[in-house]
Amino acid sequence: MKYTITKDPHEDERVQKIIEISGQNIFSCYQCGRCSSGCPMAEFMDVLPNQVFMFLQEGDVDTLLNAKTPWICAACFTCTVRCPVGLDLAAVMEAIRELQLRKNYDYVDPYKVEDREELPPIAMVSNFRKFTP
């Protein structure tokens, strides 16, 4: 496990893009961990929310683009409201997803959704809005 920083993360374009889309200063995170400990989905994630911020602060966007975490976040805002420095983590997760989705990437395939009849419309609408471009 080794990561070589080749460039000041503050100058990284993709980090800047994430800051721009989310409107959050990702550098204000001080790694208290409260987002992760309160996250109802954390146990299913491969990168914990607090680690997401450390990766960003180190400029390692690639790891995040390949991680499951942004796609597991349920945008429940538990972390957002509890973050001591007021970071909207849900928006940052969305920004990371957006980097992918804006390349016309489908995370879910609507045709492969099971039990479409019984799912409430809001479930499908919200899922597709979050996971398709």
Binding site: Q31, C32, G33, R34, C35, S36, S37, G38, C39, A42, E43, V47, L48, N50, Q51, T78, R82
Partner: peptide, 28 residues
């Protein structure tokens, strides 16, 4: 354990502390 606790709730007559270890990257 290095990580801030986010929730404490009662389970039976004990209290469940929901925390994180940010160093190993695990929920504790």
């Amino acid at each position: 354990i290095r990580g801030k606790v986010s929730k404490v709730y009662k389970v039976g007559d004990r209290y469940r502390v929901q925390g994180v270890d940010t160093l190993t990257g695990r929920i504790v």
